[in-house]
């Protein structure tokens, strides 16, 4: 499996844009579609992936013990009960940051690649050591951003760095899209962001309160087969990642009331 395994870095530059939420939902969605998937929490400073997946109480060992060879990989992996195709390798103690090297990260990911078809790496924010370690162990990347100036600027910075590390392909996920604000021209549109960053769009995720509800429960939206807007988006992204041809959601069509139609008319380009 090792050489065909897709090792995908999920990164953004800026914090709080939705990397961990995407990693958890993609992990579950891929597992549901029958793909053996590992999610690796590489955010050793501020680990959260365990919490979003509802696995925080089942952690015994972490990536740290695996690297120190005080336990085997399968002892540290936490298998998801409902979706056994998914396993989490938890982040170790934040003090790992003091000694962790790119080679350590590569070693961990290599071990995971022997057992899984997809390895999703939840990257820390920033472009410093934590990011560089995680990049060194990845072949592909998904850059997550929001339609806001600071998030797009940081994404651009990260894309530049991914290019110098020969990461390929690099694809974009635009998260927290609000169709109403775009219709009012008070939010960067999907085209604005893809034009500026010049990346292929893997998908967009609508702003959705259910994301918060699902994190409260530790049950990613994709787990329950929810029909909420963000749940649909995450499942589509998982399918596209596997190479399926799923059309993009058109945010301007999300709403059919007269008010929405009027807003659409107002943003039609006339010259």
């Amino acid at each position: 499996m090792s050489t065909n395994t897709r090792t995908i870095l999920i990164c953004s530059g800026k914090g709080g844009v939705g990397k961990t939420t995407l990693t958890a939902n993609l992990g579950i969605a891929l597992a549901k579609q029958g793909v053996k998937t590992a999610v690796l929490d590489a955010d050793f400073g501020l680990r959260n992936l365990d919490l979003l997946l509802g696995l925080e109480n089942r952690i015994v060992y972490t990536a740290q013990e695996v690297l120190e060879e005080s336990c085997r990989l399968d002892q540290a992996l936490v298998k998801h009960k409902q979706e056994p195709n998914l396993a989490l390798l938890p982040a170790g103690n934040p003090r790992m940051l003091d000694w962790l090297k790119p080679e350590d990260m590569q070693r961990i990911v290599k071990m995971l690649s022997d057992q899984f078809e997809y390895v999703l790496i939840d990257c820390p924010a920033g472009v410093e050591d934590g990011f560089k370690n995680a990049v060194s162990a990845s072949k592909e990347a998904i850059v997550v951003t929001n339609p806001e100036v600071s998030a797009v600027r940081d994404a651009d910075r990260v894309i530049g760095l991914l290019n110098t590390h020969s990461i390929n392909p690099v694809q974009l996920v635009l998260n927290r899209v609000r169709p109403n604000m775009i219709a009012n021209q008070e939010m960067l549109s999907v085209d604005d962001v893809t034009d500026i960053l010049a990346l292929p769009l893997l998908g967009l995720v609508l702003e959705d309160e259910q994301v918060i509800v699902s994190t409260n429960r530790g049950e990613p939206l994709t787990l329950s087969g929810s029909k909420s807007p963000a749940a649909r988006c995450y499942s589509n992204i998982a399918s596209r990642l596997k190479g399926e041809d799923i059309p993009l959601i058109d945010p301007s069509k999300e709403g059919s009331r007269i008010r929405d139609k009027f807003k659409r008319l107002m943003q039609t380009k006339i010259f």
């Binding site: 960067l188 549109s189 107002m266 006339i270």
Partner: peptide
């Protein structure tokens, strides 16, 4: 130029912030 842009000009309202965001980002 969209209908909204024209309306904003006529009413001397501020430019839609998405345009401002796009221009500032490009720079």
């Amino acid at each position: 130029m969209t209908l909204r842009d024209i309306l904003n000009k006529l009413l001397r309202r501020q430019e839609a912030s998405a345009n401002t965001a796009r221009e500032r980002l490009q720079l």
